[in-house]
Design a protein around this nucleic acid. Structure first.
Lengths: 154, 154
DNA sequence: ACGTAATTGCGTCCAGGTCGCATCTAGGGC
DNA sequence: GCCCTAGATGCGACCTGGACGCAATTACGT
Protein backbone atom coordinates (compact mmCIF):
# COMPACT_ATOMS: atom_id res chain seq x y z
CA UNK A 1 0.00 0.00 0.00
CA UNK A 2 1.48 3.34 -0.99
CA UNK A 3 1.36 6.39 1.24
CA UNK A 4 -1.27 8.07 -0.88
CA UNK A 5 -3.37 4.88 -0.96
CA UNK A 6 -3.35 4.91 2.79
CA UNK A 7 -4.19 8.58 2.91
CA UNK A 8 -7.15 8.15 0.56
CA UNK A 9 -8.30 5.07 2.46
CA UNK A 10 -8.45 6.94 5.74
CA UNK A 11 -10.14 9.93 4.13
CA UNK A 12 -12.77 7.58 2.67
CA UNK A 13 -13.39 6.13 6.12
CA UNK A 14 -13.70 9.60 7.51
CA UNK A 15 -16.19 10.61 4.81
CA UNK A 16 -18.17 7.40 5.36
CA UNK A 17 -18.61 8.35 9.00
CA UNK A 18 -20.04 11.76 8.19
CA UNK A 19 -16.72 13.53 8.64
CA UNK A 20 -15.41 16.20 6.30
CA UNK A 21 -12.17 16.37 4.43
CA UNK A 22 -10.36 19.61 4.99
CA UNK A 23 -6.94 20.86 4.17
CA UNK A 24 -5.69 20.69 7.79
CA UNK A 25 -6.87 17.10 7.99
CA UNK A 26 -5.07 16.12 4.81
CA UNK A 27 -1.93 17.77 6.09
CA UNK A 28 -2.07 16.13 9.53
CA UNK A 29 -2.69 12.72 8.02
CA UNK A 30 0.17 13.17 5.54
CA UNK A 31 2.50 14.20 8.35
CA UNK A 32 1.49 11.11 10.32
CA UNK A 33 2.08 8.82 7.34
CA UNK A 34 5.36 10.46 6.40
CA UNK A 35 6.72 10.42 9.92
CA UNK A 36 6.51 6.68 10.21
CA UNK A 37 7.67 6.19 13.81
CA UNK A 38 6.03 7.38 16.99
CA UNK A 39 5.50 11.13 16.67
CA UNK A 40 4.07 13.32 19.38
CA UNK A 41 1.23 15.73 18.71
CA UNK A 42 3.74 18.53 18.98
CA UNK A 43 6.02 17.01 16.32
CA UNK A 44 3.07 16.52 13.99
CA UNK A 45 1.99 20.11 14.55
CA UNK A 46 5.46 21.33 13.66
CA UNK A 47 5.53 19.20 10.51
CA UNK A 48 2.13 20.47 9.44
CA UNK A 49 2.91 24.08 10.24
CA UNK A 50 6.04 24.02 8.12
CA UNK A 51 3.71 23.86 5.11
CA UNK A 52 0.50 25.34 6.54
CA UNK A 53 1.41 27.73 9.36
CA UNK A 54 -2.17 28.54 10.30
CA UNK A 55 -3.07 25.03 11.39
CA UNK A 56 -3.53 25.18 15.14
CA UNK A 57 -2.24 22.77 17.75
CA UNK A 58 -5.72 22.13 19.06
CA UNK A 59 -6.85 21.10 15.57
CA UNK A 60 -4.15 18.45 15.60
CA UNK A 61 -5.24 17.17 19.00
CA UNK A 62 -8.88 17.06 17.97
CA UNK A 63 -8.21 15.27 14.72
CA UNK A 64 -5.97 12.72 16.41
CA UNK A 65 -8.79 12.06 18.88
CA UNK A 66 -11.16 11.50 16.01
CA UNK A 67 -8.75 9.19 14.21
CA UNK A 68 -8.54 7.23 17.41
CA UNK A 69 -12.33 7.00 17.68
CA UNK A 70 -12.36 5.67 14.13
CA UNK A 71 -9.79 3.05 15.07
CA UNK A 72 -7.18 4.45 12.69
CA UNK A 73 -4.54 5.38 15.25
CA UNK A 74 -3.68 4.61 18.87
CA UNK A 75 -1.96 6.84 21.38
CA UNK A 76 0.68 5.49 23.73
CA UNK A 77 2.12 7.05 26.86
CA UNK A 78 5.83 6.30 26.89
CA UNK A 79 6.46 7.48 30.42
CA UNK A 80 6.56 11.03 31.64
CA UNK A 81 6.55 12.93 28.39
CA UNK A 82 3.84 13.60 25.85
CA UNK A 83 1.84 10.79 24.23
CA UNK A 84 2.91 9.43 20.86
CA UNK A 85 0.71 8.15 18.04
CA UNK A 86 0.91 5.25 15.61
CA UNK A 87 -1.39 3.51 13.16
CA UNK A 88 -3.61 0.93 14.79
CA UNK A 89 -3.10 -1.82 12.21
CA UNK A 90 -0.22 -4.13 13.07
CA UNK A 91 -0.87 -3.64 16.78
CA UNK A 92 2.11 -3.97 19.10
CA UNK A 93 3.23 -3.19 22.61
CA UNK A 94 6.03 -0.80 23.50
CA UNK A 95 9.10 -1.02 25.67
CA UNK A 96 10.70 2.34 26.40
CA UNK A 97 14.18 2.85 27.80
CA UNK A 98 14.53 5.28 30.69
CA UNK A 99 18.14 5.77 29.76
CA UNK A 100 18.20 6.63 26.06
CA UNK A 101 14.51 6.87 25.26
CA UNK A 102 14.55 4.22 22.55
CA UNK A 103 11.19 2.60 21.84
CA UNK A 104 11.14 -1.14 21.15
CA UNK A 105 8.06 -2.56 19.47
CA UNK A 106 6.91 -5.94 20.75
CA UNK A 107 4.46 -8.15 18.83
CA UNK A 108 1.22 -8.63 20.73
CA UNK A 109 1.62 -12.37 20.90
CA UNK A 110 4.92 -12.08 22.73
CA UNK A 111 3.06 -11.03 25.86
CA UNK A 112 -0.03 -13.19 25.40
CA UNK A 113 1.01 -15.96 27.72
CA UNK A 114 1.91 -13.49 30.43
CA UNK A 115 -1.46 -11.79 30.02
CA UNK A 116 -3.20 -15.17 30.32
CA UNK A 117 -1.37 -15.91 33.53
CA UNK A 118 -2.22 -12.57 35.04
CA UNK A 119 -5.84 -13.06 34.04
CA UNK A 120 -5.92 -16.53 35.57
CA UNK A 121 -3.87 -15.91 38.72
CA UNK A 122 -4.93 -12.38 39.54
CA UNK A 123 -8.28 -12.01 37.77
CA UNK A 124 -7.04 -8.97 35.97
CA UNK A 125 -7.22 -8.19 32.26
CA UNK A 126 -4.08 -6.24 31.39
CA UNK A 127 -4.47 -3.66 28.67
CA UNK A 128 -1.11 -2.43 27.45
CA UNK A 129 -2.28 -0.66 24.32
CA UNK A 130 -1.94 2.81 25.78
CA UNK A 131 0.98 2.45 28.15
CA UNK A 132 4.54 1.40 27.39
CA UNK A 133 6.52 -0.87 29.68
CA UNK A 134 9.42 1.15 31.10
CA UNK A 135 12.90 -0.15 31.78
CA UNK A 136 16.42 -0.19 30.42
CA UNK A 137 17.52 -1.40 27.02
CA UNK A 138 20.50 -3.72 26.64
CA UNK A 139 22.79 -0.92 25.60
CA UNK A 140 21.96 1.19 28.65
CA UNK A 141 22.04 -1.57 31.26
CA UNK A 142 24.89 -3.49 29.72
CA UNK A 143 28.67 -3.08 29.28
CA UNK A 144 28.92 0.70 29.50
CA UNK A 145 26.82 1.58 32.52
CA UNK A 146 29.08 4.54 33.13
CA UNK A 147 28.19 5.90 29.72
CA UNK A 148 24.47 6.06 30.43
CA UNK A 149 24.03 9.81 30.49
CA UNK A 150 21.21 11.48 28.58
CA UNK A 151 17.83 10.08 29.35
CA UNK A 152 14.27 10.31 30.45
CA UNK A 153 14.14 9.50 34.16
CA UNK A 154 11.19 8.15 36.11
CA UNK B 1 6.42 -1.90 64.52
CA UNK B 2 4.05 0.77 65.73
CA UNK B 3 3.24 3.90 63.80
CA UNK B 4 5.28 6.09 66.08
CA UNK B 5 8.21 3.67 65.93
CA UNK B 6 8.13 4.02 62.20
CA UNK B 7 7.91 7.77 62.44
CA UNK B 8 10.89 8.01 64.79
CA UNK B 9 12.86 5.58 62.67
CA UNK B 10 12.44 7.69 59.55
CA UNK B 11 13.20 10.87 61.45
CA UNK B 12 16.40 9.29 62.73
CA UNK B 13 17.39 8.37 59.19
CA UNK B 14 16.69 11.91 58.11
CA UNK B 15 18.76 13.35 60.94
CA UNK B 16 21.59 10.92 60.15
CA UNK B 17 21.73 12.27 56.61
CA UNK B 18 22.11 15.85 57.75
CA UNK B 19 18.43 16.62 57.39
CA UNK B 20 16.42 18.61 59.89
CA UNK B 21 13.28 17.68 61.71
CA UNK B 22 10.58 20.27 61.40
CA UNK B 23 6.95 20.39 62.26
CA UNK B 24 5.78 20.20 58.61
CA UNK B 25 7.95 17.12 58.14
CA UNK B 26 6.53 15.40 61.19
CA UNK B 27 3.03 16.15 59.98
CA UNK B 28 3.62 14.93 56.44
CA UNK B 29 5.20 11.73 57.67
CA UNK B 30 2.36 11.12 60.13
CA UNK B 31 -0.17 11.66 57.37
CA UNK B 32 1.67 9.17 55.17
CA UNK B 33 1.80 6.57 57.93
CA UNK B 34 -1.82 7.09 58.94
CA UNK B 35 -3.15 6.95 55.40
CA UNK B 36 -1.83 3.48 54.81
CA UNK B 37 -2.85 3.02 51.18
CA UNK B 38 -1.67 4.90 48.12
CA UNK B 39 -2.23 8.59 48.77
CA UNK B 40 -1.50 11.34 46.28
CA UNK B 41 0.52 14.39 47.23
CA UNK B 42 -2.69 16.36 47.14
CA UNK B 43 -4.41 14.01 49.61
CA UNK B 44 -1.46 14.19 51.96
CA UNK B 45 -1.46 17.97 51.71
CA UNK B 46 -5.12 18.05 52.63
CA UNK B 47 -4.55 15.72 55.60
CA UNK B 48 -1.66 17.82 56.84
CA UNK B 49 -3.47 21.11 56.33
CA UNK B 50 -6.44 19.94 58.37
CA UNK B 51 -4.12 20.20 61.39
CA UNK B 52 -1.51 22.69 60.15
CA UNK B 53 -3.11 24.95 57.55
CA UNK B 54 0.08 26.83 56.73
CA UNK B 55 1.96 23.85 55.36
CA UNK B 56 2.33 24.45 51.67
CA UNK B 57 1.81 22.01 48.82
CA UNK B 58 5.32 22.51 47.53
CA UNK B 59 6.73 21.56 50.93
CA UNK B 60 4.90 18.26 50.62
CA UNK B 61 6.30 17.65 47.13
CA UNK B 62 9.82 18.50 48.23
CA UNK B 63 9.72 16.34 51.31
CA UNK B 64 8.31 13.39 49.39
CA UNK B 65 11.17 13.79 46.91
CA UNK B 66 13.61 13.69 49.75
CA UNK B 67 12.01 10.65 51.32
CA UNK B 68 12.34 8.98 47.96
CA UNK B 69 16.03 9.88 47.72
CA UNK B 70 16.47 8.33 51.16
CA UNK B 71 14.77 5.16 49.97
CA UNK B 72 11.88 5.55 52.40
CA UNK B 73 9.07 5.88 49.88
CA UNK B 74 8.42 5.21 46.20
CA UNK B 75 6.12 7.06 43.85
CA UNK B 76 3.95 5.22 41.34
CA UNK B 77 2.10 6.56 38.32
CA UNK B 78 -1.23 4.77 38.19
CA UNK B 79 -2.22 6.00 34.77
CA UNK B 80 -3.36 9.46 33.82
CA UNK B 81 -3.84 11.01 37.23
CA UNK B 82 -1.42 12.21 39.87
CA UNK B 83 1.31 9.97 41.26
CA UNK B 84 0.72 8.08 44.49
CA UNK B 85 3.21 7.24 47.24
CA UNK B 86 3.87 4.21 49.41
CA UNK B 87 6.59 3.03 51.74
CA UNK B 88 9.46 1.34 49.94
CA UNK B 89 9.75 -1.64 52.26
CA UNK B 90 7.65 -4.62 51.19
CA UNK B 91 8.10 -3.64 47.53
CA UNK B 92 5.33 -4.62 45.13
CA UNK B 93 3.99 -3.91 41.68
CA UNK B 94 0.61 -2.34 40.95
CA UNK B 95 -2.29 -3.24 38.74
CA UNK B 96 -4.77 -0.43 38.27
CA UNK B 97 -8.29 -0.82 36.89
CA UNK B 98 -9.35 1.66 34.20
CA UNK B 99 -12.94 1.01 35.15
CA UNK B 100 -13.18 1.52 38.89
CA UNK B 101 -9.68 2.72 39.73
CA UNK B 102 -8.97 -0.06 42.21
CA UNK B 103 -5.28 -0.71 42.83
CA UNK B 104 -4.15 -4.32 43.18
CA UNK B 105 -0.78 -4.96 44.79
CA UNK B 106 1.27 -7.74 43.25
CA UNK B 107 4.27 -9.30 45.01
CA UNK B 108 7.48 -8.67 43.11
CA UNK B 109 8.16 -12.36 42.63
CA UNK B 110 4.89 -12.87 40.77
CA UNK B 111 6.37 -11.07 37.79
CA UNK B 112 9.93 -12.27 38.12
CA UNK B 113 9.69 -15.03 35.57
CA UNK B 114 8.10 -12.70 33.08
CA UNK B 115 10.85 -10.16 33.64
CA UNK B 116 13.47 -12.86 33.11
CA UNK B 117 11.88 -13.81 29.81
CA UNK B 118 11.73 -10.25 28.60
CA UNK B 119 15.36 -9.79 29.60
CA UNK B 120 16.40 -12.94 27.76
CA UNK B 121 14.21 -12.68 24.66
CA UNK B 122 14.21 -8.93 24.16
CA UNK B 123 17.34 -7.79 25.98
CA UNK B 124 15.31 -5.38 28.03
CA UNK B 125 15.32 -4.89 31.77
CA UNK B 126 11.77 -4.01 32.79
CA UNK B 127 11.45 -1.64 35.72
CA UNK B 128 7.89 -1.52 37.00
CA UNK B 129 8.53 0.23 40.29
CA UNK B 130 7.21 3.57 39.10
CA UNK B 131 4.47 2.60 36.67
CA UNK B 132 1.39 0.51 37.28
CA UNK B 133 0.11 -2.02 34.78
CA UNK B 134 -3.27 -0.80 33.52
CA UNK B 135 -6.24 -2.96 32.67
CA UNK B 136 -9.59 -4.12 34.01
CA UNK B 137 -10.26 -5.86 37.26
CA UNK B 138 -12.44 -8.96 37.40
CA UNK B 139 -15.44 -7.03 38.64
CA UNK B 140 -15.28 -4.52 35.78
CA UNK B 141 -14.60 -6.95 32.95
CA UNK B 142 -16.78 -9.71 34.32
CA UNK B 143 -20.51 -10.38 34.71
CA UNK B 144 -21.80 -6.83 34.82
CA UNK B 145 -20.09 -5.16 31.86
CA UNK B 146 -23.11 -2.92 31.45
CA UNK B 147 -22.58 -1.60 34.97
CA UNK B 148 -19.07 -0.35 34.25
CA UNK B 149 -19.67 3.36 34.41
CA UNK B 150 -17.47 5.60 36.56
CA UNK B 151 -13.81 5.26 35.88
CA UNK B 152 -10.49 6.56 34.77
CA UNK B 153 -10.19 6.08 31.02
CA UNK B 154 -6.99 5.81 29.00
C1' DA C 1 23.10 32.11 72.85
C1' DC C 2 24.85 32.25 68.06
C1' DG C 3 25.79 31.41 63.35
C1' DT C 4 24.59 29.25 59.32
C1' DA C 5 22.98 25.97 56.30
C1' DA C 6 18.69 23.69 55.71
C1' DT C 7 13.90 24.37 55.15
C1' DT C 8 9.66 26.83 54.29
C1' DG C 9 5.86 29.67 52.21
C1' DC C 10 4.81 32.11 48.40
C1' DG C 11 4.31 33.25 43.83
C1' DT C 12 5.48 32.27 39.26
C1' DC C 13 6.25 29.30 35.70
C1' DC C 14 6.09 24.97 32.96
C1' DA C 15 4.24 20.98 30.05
C1' DG C 16 0.67 18.78 28.02
C1' DG C 17 -3.51 19.08 27.00
C1' DT C 18 -8.83 20.50 26.98
C1' DC C 19 -12.73 23.52 26.10
C1' DG C 20 -16.00 27.27 24.65
C1' DC C 21 -17.01 30.17 21.18
C1' DA C 22 -17.42 32.88 17.06
C1' DT C 23 -16.17 32.13 12.37
C1' DC C 24 -15.60 29.58 8.33
C1' DT C 25 -16.38 25.93 4.91
C1' DA C 26 -17.35 21.16 2.83
C1' DG C 27 -20.33 19.08 0.30
C1' DG C 28 -25.40 17.16 0.05
C1' DG C 29 -29.71 18.82 -1.97
C1' DC C 30 -31.76 21.34 -5.24
C1' DG D 1 -23.68 25.97 -9.99
C1' DC D 2 -25.38 27.86 -5.67
C1' DC D 3 -27.34 27.54 -1.03
C1' DC D 4 -27.64 25.87 3.60
C1' DT D 5 -26.15 23.87 7.69
C1' DA D 6 -23.70 20.67 10.40
C1' DG D 7 -19.10 19.93 11.08
C1' DA D 8 -14.50 21.82 11.46
C1' DT D 9 -11.26 25.52 12.59
C1' DG D 10 -8.44 29.22 14.96
C1' DC D 11 -7.97 31.46 18.99
C1' DG D 12 -7.54 32.26 23.63
C1' DA D 13 -8.60 31.00 28.25
C1' DC D 14 -8.34 27.45 31.33
C1' DC D 15 -6.92 23.10 33.87
C1' DT D 16 -4.02 19.61 36.39
C1' DG D 17 0.14 18.19 38.33
C1' DG D 18 4.17 19.61 39.50
C1' DA D 19 8.96 22.37 39.48
C1' DC D 20 11.57 26.44 40.79
C1' DG D 21 13.70 30.91 42.54
C1' DC D 22 13.74 33.71 46.31
C1' DA D 23 13.51 35.93 50.68
C1' DA D 24 12.27 34.85 55.37
C1' DT D 25 12.52 31.53 58.94
C1' DT D 26 14.36 27.93 61.88
C1' DA D 27 16.87 23.69 63.63
C1' DC D 28 20.70 22.42 65.89
C1' DG D 29 26.13 21.84 66.32
C1' DT D 30 29.19 24.40 68.87
Amino acid sequence: MTSSDRLEQVLALLRAGGGRITSPRRAILSALIDHGGHPTAEQLTADVQSRQPDVHESTVYRFLDELERLGVVDHVHLGHGPAVYHFADDPHHHLVCDGCGVVVEVPVKTLEEFQRRVRRDLEFEMELRHFALPGRCGACVGPARAGAAGGAGS
